[in-house]
Amino acid sequence: MLKYIGKRLLAMIPVVLGVTLIVYCIMSLAPGDPARTILGEQASVEQVEALREEMGLNDPIIVQYLRYIWNLLHGDFGTSYQSRIDVSTEIWSRFPNTIKLALVASLISVVLALPLGIIAAVKQNTFFDSFSMFIAIIGISCPTFWFGLILILVFAVNLKWFPVSGQVNTLKGIILPALTLGFNSMAAMARVTRSSMLEVIRQDYIRTARAKGVSNRNVILQHAVPNAMIPTVTVIGLRIGGLLAGAVICETVFAWPGIGRLLVQSIQSRNTPVVLGCIIIFSICFSLVNLIVDVLYAFIDPRIKSQYQ
């Protein structure tokens, strides 16, 4: 197992490099001049050209890319074109907030999705099933910004139970943004859990367990749920990755100082070093989450564990 994990960690290096190459090329080929964005409308064409030269933007893209990678290998993520602050400082001041939000949102979505999905499957075609899937459809259908604003209006403005924003380091400060972000993921997870459970509870070994007189509760919890978890864990992994990178709208509504908003702003201003820094962090996170999901498979299904060995 350790050997497998080691191999996967090594495989992350070409993945990250490949991602940086693609993103660097896209940023370089996209219209818009970083030098003009930095100097603003008042700068003359000559001043903009001088800055391009100083920044090395007139060099061939491959030269610029290799220079970036060389600096990266020395631990230098570069300097933000706009703020002139180290990219690592820019990112690390926000990244913990993104991780915090993604983890709490994931926790909320998993805690809500698993019971909903399981109950919906076990009580198929009953009121519980319809109710669970109704909640799931609402979760998928509600636009994040709308749901977030409704939560703010009800729980922050009217009931005053939670703050609208600005309390990143408190439990009550994270609940509304995490709930907003987690609600949509919860819906997807609940639906996958339900369909996976429906498939499992029709298997012969479940019928055998029931025939042997195992209580319904034990059949579900000990036999059905573990076997239904592979697709659910896969979706959870993908969703956590998505929550890390895709929280922009939630961050905007709740003024959450996360990395998603930084990434979007940086793309708009052609702030290539910050964009690349964010993308590297995201690709590492995605790879790690995928690795964790693959390792979890081994614990859920002994047959997969034997393949790793």
Partner: peptide, 18 residues
């Protein structure tokens, strides 16, 4: 000096007294 990019959120934080 707080940064709240979303227009409606900016008004709601005022109404919420934040």
């Amino acid at each position: 000096w707080r940064f709240i990019p979303e227009g409606t959120s900016r008004s709601l934080v005022l109404e919420a007294g934040e």
